Simulated scan of single mutants.
Amino acid sequence: MNVDEYLARLNAERPAAADLATLRHLQERHLAAVPFENLSIHLGEHVSLAEDVLFDKIVRRRRGGFCYELNGLFAALLRELGFTASLHAAQVFRPDGTLGPPLDHAAIVVELAEPWLVDVGFGRFARHPLRLSGVDAQSDPEGEFLLLDTPDGDIDVLLDGKPQYRLERRRRPLADFVPMAWWQSTSPESHFTRSLTCSRPTSQGRVTLSGSKLIETVDGVRNEVELPTEAAIRMAYRVYFGLPLTRLPTPPGEIPLTPRADHPDTAVHAQ
């Protein structure tokens, strides 16, 4: 990994210390610079979790990704900078309150004087590290987070009282997530194959491009605009997310879920 190249992608300088202030700054910069997106699935690109492939995609080709990609590569950067950072699996809560499958999500735990939850791959989520052992509500620009121990020893993460995911305490290598990443990117039952999204937080809210629909939330006010042409959609990807796409992703249901042999990536949540 070229650390300086990755930091330049985040518009961040090499930190002097691996401390909480640095961790918070890097998380903020990552969320602002690297969008949460599942475009590869709808561009016919194979999703790989190999670190060199992730680095090429996210840093050199200035793309985004979903949880396994974003948190997988960010955890590797944190370790290069001297942090003790590990990946942890989580089950995402469905709208009806039931839990999704194991390894449905990957998040990061960073050990400082105490453990902190860091997540740059869940769509709308905390912009700052969350105290993993905290029992009180934690305020964040995205809302109020509460982390609760479960009887089985896991941790439920709630945002404004609504359960987001259940986090395992055990550490996992990125390779553990490869089968689920394949399922998420190929199964007709996956949320990611049935939706098309590109999203990132802004200083005043959030901007999301879902197909041809541009959604901006500014100071709590949501505005939706239907983009009329492919040129307008392509421009939105470039202006709002810095994505220099040479072709547009095809809406769900209109593309075979197989990798393109001529794509350079051929080599595997917006809430």
Rank of each mutant, 00 (worst) to 15 (best):
G44E: 02
F66V: 13
D119K: 10
R94V: 15
V53N: 02
V178A: 07
H269L: 09
R79N: 03
F93K: 10
G121W: 09
P95T: 14
F74W: 10
S133P: 06
F74A: 03
A18N: 10
P129D: 06
S40Y: 08
C198V: 09
T266I: 04
L77M: 07
A32Y: 15
V47M: 04
Y237A: 00
A17Q: 09
R170G: 12
P256F: 05
V207W: 05
E114D: 06
S133N: 04
F66W: 10
L81G: 14
A261Y: 03
R29Y: 10
R79G: 02
A126L: 04
L54F: 09
Q91R: 14
T258Y: 10
P249S: 01
G161A: 01
P129A: 07
F36T: 11
L159N: 03
I233E: 03
F36A: 01
A236T: 13
A85W: 06
E254P: 09
H269M: 13
R234H: 01
A126G: 06
A50M: 12
R9V: 05
L158W: 03
Y237C: 02
Y68H: 13
R200P: 04
M180G: 01
P115H: 02
N11F: 11
L112K: 14
L147W: 13
L257S: 01
E216F: 08
I215R: 01
Q271M: 15
V3S: 04
T22C: 13
P141A: 01
L159H: 03
S48P: 12
R170E: 12
T186Y: 10
S48Q: 03
A21F: 06
G82V: 11
P102Q: 05
E37G: 00
F125W: 04
A76V: 08
P163N: 03
F241W: 00
W182Q: 13
A33L: 06
I58K: 07
D265M: 09
L70K: 15
L70Q: 07
